[in-house]
Structures are given as C-alpha cells and as structure tokens.
C-alpha cells in the first residue's frame, strides 16, 4: 500500500493549476480531498507522475448565496456543507445527504468538487446534484464552460470533463418543498447499497414538481425523468408512488458485489425510494 513516486505541486490559482495540467498532460492529476485518488495511488491502480493539489487555491473554498442562486466552490468540504446555515436554508437536502457520507474525519477533508468530479458511482453527491439539477463549471486552457450534472456522467470514472479541465464550482437554484435522502449502507463509512434523493413540491394536495435521483445502482447516477413524471400532477397517492418506484427501478442497472446480488439491490432501491418519497411528501 505504497504509491509509486510522483512530483507534488501546490498552485495558488486555477490558472496555474490548469497550466500544470496542460504542461504535464496524461501523467498529471489534480487532487482535492484525496479520499478516492490516494487509495487508488496506494494500490498502484492510479499511476501518475505529477500530483496537483488544489488546497492552495482559496478561490475554490466558498459557498455563495445570491437570491435564489447557490454556488459552491469545488474545494468546500463535506463538513462545511453540513455546517453552512445559508446553504441549509436554500437546500436542506444537502446537509441531510452529507451527514450520511462517511464519518466526521473524512468529511473534514473530503470535498464536494472531488466527490462529483471523480465519477465514482458510489459517491453520493453526483446523484444529489442531479436531483438538484445542478450545473458544474469546468475551467480549461480554452476558458470555462458549464455542464449540467444530469449530462456530466458517461460511465464509471468517465465524465464530460476533459483531462485538461478542472471542475471549479457547483451551482443550483434554491429548492422549496419537501426533501429526503435515504441511504442503506452496511456500516458507517460505507458506500450506499442503495440510495435515493427526492425533492417534492406541492400545491394544495397535488404534486407540482418532483425530482428523483439514485446512487450506486448503475455505473453512473440515475435521474429517471419518467419516475418524477409519475408523481407530478398526482395527489402522491399509493398508486402514483408505486408507479414512480417501478419507473425508477426499471431505470437502474445495479451490479452484484459484496453488498448483495442484483435482485436484492433492485428491491432495496425501491424501498429506499419509496421511503424517500414518503418522507419528502410529509415535509412538502
């Protein structure tokens, strides 16, 4: 469990970091909290010559709330996501989900940017950001561009981000209404066996907006529009919820691992989603 040798860089601006990426090409990787990358390096599954640490870039460390718009710097830690009251008032589901990630020690170091950029299907934040319909800003040698979270993930560890781009911030609009993040895991610190993020808005007794995303149940997060559609315009009755759950379970493609076989994962994915919908509905 010892990585191969590499050079360490600690730039103080995004521009400098991008330049290092361009200069060193394939042999360079940026590191945020390191909870995914460092174990891969120790297992020598990630073999790199240059490690570019983003900890020295202060521009990436703030949470900004402006009207209904929330922007979170890529280097904001999970702990800060939990502690920030302004963020909580705009999107309480972020705190609820972050509290279910790993443990406090990991959350003091693990970042939102690293969590969403790495493309690990086990990470919780990609699904949550799809649920929030967030947008990621990436900066490369040709300037910056925005990519919707819902179209960012291509396959496990493959994303829309180019190798010479750095994900710098995450933005979304404030979400009213009910919310819930339900996660089944084997123990504290584990990735999800199945997890669901749900946002629901109601007017009178009727659902006016809904958003659903699922984590660790395919090689990317899954945000099934047909499942959300099954709820919108309904009274969130049993039949609608069942239709949404069925649509979501049809959209996932879990793999067997030590957490259990496919049949089990599909079943508990439905259970987690049903619980999330019911809890979000009660809060809406």
């Amino acid at each position: 469990m010892i990585p191969g040798s590499f050079d360490y860089h600690r730039p103080d601006s995004v521009g400098a970091a991008v330049k290092l990426l361009v200069d060193f090409g394939d042999g360079a990787r940026v590191i945020a909290g390191g909870h995914s990358l460092i174990p891969m390096m120790k297992l020598r599954m990630a073999d790199l010559d240059h490690l570019i640490d983003l900890q020295g870039i202060n521009d990436l460390k703030s949470i900004t709330v402006s009207g209904a718009n929330v922007t979170i710097g890529a280097m904001v830690t999970q702990h800060e996501l939990i502690a920030n009251e302004a963020l909580f008032s705009m999107a309480p589901i972020v705190r609820e989900a972050a509290l279910q990630i790993a443990d406090p020690q990991v959350r003091y170091v693990g970042t939102l940017g690293g969590n969403v950029a790495n493309g690990d299907p086990g990470n919780d934040m990609p699904g949550l950001m799809q649920c929030l319909d967030a947008s990621y800003t990436v900066v490369g040698p040709n300037g910056s561009r925005d990519i919707a979270a819902r179209s960012f993930y291509e396959a496990a560890y493959f994303t829309e981000r180019q190798d010479d781009e750095i994900l710098t911030s995450i933005s979304f609009k404030s979400k009213k209404g009910g919310y819930a993040y339900e996660k089944q895991k084997r123990k504290i610190g584990d990735y999800a066996t199945a997890a669901s993020a749900v946002l629901i808005e109601k007017d009178g007794g009727n659902c006016t907006a809904a958003s659903i995303a699922m984590t660790n149940l395919s090689d990317t997060p899954v945000c099934p529009q047909e499942a959300a559609a099954a709820l919108i315009g309904t009274a969130l009755d049993e039949a609608s919820i069942s239709a949404a759950v069925t649509a979501a379970v049809n959209a996932i493609d879990p793999a067997e691992d030590n957490r259990g076989p496919v049949e089990f994962k599909k079943y508990v994915a439905g259970i987690m989603l049903r619980r999330a919908i019911e809890r979000a509905t009660a809060r809406a």
């Binding site: 259990g260 049949e263 508990v268």
Partner: peptide
C-alpha cells in the same frame, strides 16, 4: 446475517 442474506430469508419465505 448481513442485509442481503436476511433479505433473502424473508424473500424465500414469501414475506415480500
């Protein structure tokens, strides 16, 4: 008796 094996017991006994 981890989650999936317990789930399997319930499943095989027709409790789902």
């Amino acid at each position: 008796h981890d989650h999936w094996r317990i789930w399997k017991i319930a499943h095989d006994l027709g409790l789902h």
